[in-house]
Simulated scan of single mutants.
Amino acid sequence: MSKLPAKRAAIALAAAATAAAAALSLTFVTDASASAPAPGTARTATALPSVSGSPEGAFTRIADFYGSYIDAVYDGDGKTADQLRAFYLSKPLQQELRQWEEANHANGVLRAQNVPLQWKVASTGSGTGKTNATVTLTWGGGDTTEIHVQADLKTRKITSIKD
């Protein structure tokens, strides 16, 4: 077996080191779920969160409103919270909430004095020109409350918020 000249050996060693470094960096970049599954098992992907909706759907409007409204109240942005109320809520409901808030000294949309840390909106069906949803609010201690919300299918305005 002939010996490689020193220069040729150095080039081969450098190429091998570069390939090893590239393979190592690829390992750090790929997700752990990208590794080969054990024989006889399927690879499972971790689902990333997603949100979807439509400006035409009254149910989506309920979810959009609660998400945006809670963000605004959490951030202390009263002007934006008021603008969201004006846009998403029917005029009669806005008046009803003002009266409720005066009597209860709390936020009528959230039915509380605090701001929830999480929210979830679930459809409870549609009928007679209305769509219904339950909004579940999760508070700092892990307690939850439910609010029943109704929106008009034609105008897409929220028309009712009840405990």
Rank of each mutant, 00 (worst) to 15 (best):
130 K>D: 08
22 A>T: 12
140 G>W: 01
137 L>F: 11
142 G>F: 02
38 A>K: 12
134 T>H: 01
122 A>T: 14
48 L>P: 00
36 A>L: 14
28 F>D: 11
128 T>W: 04
100 W>Q: 07
135 V>E: 02
13 L>H: 03
141 G>C: 00
132 N>G: 02
76 G>Q: 09
92 P>E: 05
71 D>V: 10
140 G>L: 11
71 D>P: 00
33 S>W: 10
91 K>H: 00
9 A>S: 10
18 T>D: 09
77 D>G: 08
35 S>R: 15
66 Y>M: 06
98 R>T: 12
133 A>D: 05
97 L>Y: 01
99 Q>D: 13
100 W>M: 08
12 A>V: 08
127 G>N: 05
125 G>Q: 01
18 T>V: 15
122 A>C: 01
78 G>V: 02
45 A>T: 12
41 T>M: 09
113 Q>H: 07
125 G>P: 01
9 A>K: 11
101 E>K: 03
7 K>P: 00
95 Q>W: 00
42 A>C: 06
29 V>N: 09
58 A>E: 02
67 G>D: 12
6 A>N: 07
66 Y>V: 02
129 G>L: 05
16 A>H: 02
16 A>P: 00
129 G>I: 02
137 L>T: 09
56 E>N: 15
18 T>L: 15
25 S>C: 12
133 A>N: 04
88 Y>M: 07
8 R>W: 01
108 G>E: 03
62 I>W: 02
13 L>E: 12
43 R>W: 05
43 R>C: 03
120 K>T: 11
42 A>Q: 13
53 G>W: 09
20 A>K: 08
70 I>H: 06
40 G>S: 07
96 E>W: 01
19 A>H: 04
83 Q>F: 03
88 Y>T: 04
64 D>T: 11
73 V>Q: 13
39 P>L: 14
87 F>I: 08
139 W>N: 03
89 L>C: 02
139 W>H: 04
100 W>F: 15
37 P>W: 04
95 Q>H: 04
11 I>P: 00
138 T>H: 09
44 T>D: 12
32 A>W: 12
101 E>C: 05
13 L>A: 15
19 A>S: 12
135 V>G: 02
17 A>C: 06
75 D>C: 07
82 D>F: 05
87 F>Y: 13
44 T>L: 14
121 V>N: 05
144 T>E: 14
97 L>T: 03
60 T>Q: 08
27 T>I: 12
107 N>L: 08
33 S>F: 10
108 G>F: 01
109 V>P: 02
38 A>D: 11
75 D>L: 14
7 K>H: 06
11 I>V: 15
6 A>M: 07
114 N>Q: 14
92 P>L: 03
87 F>V: 08
22 A>Y: 07
7 K>Q: 06
8 R>C: 00
62 I>F: 06
102 E>D: 13
136 T>D: 02
102 E>I: 07
80 T>N: 10
109 V>E: 01
115 V>C: 08
31 D>Y: 11
29 V>A: 15
46 T>E: 12
13 L>R: 11
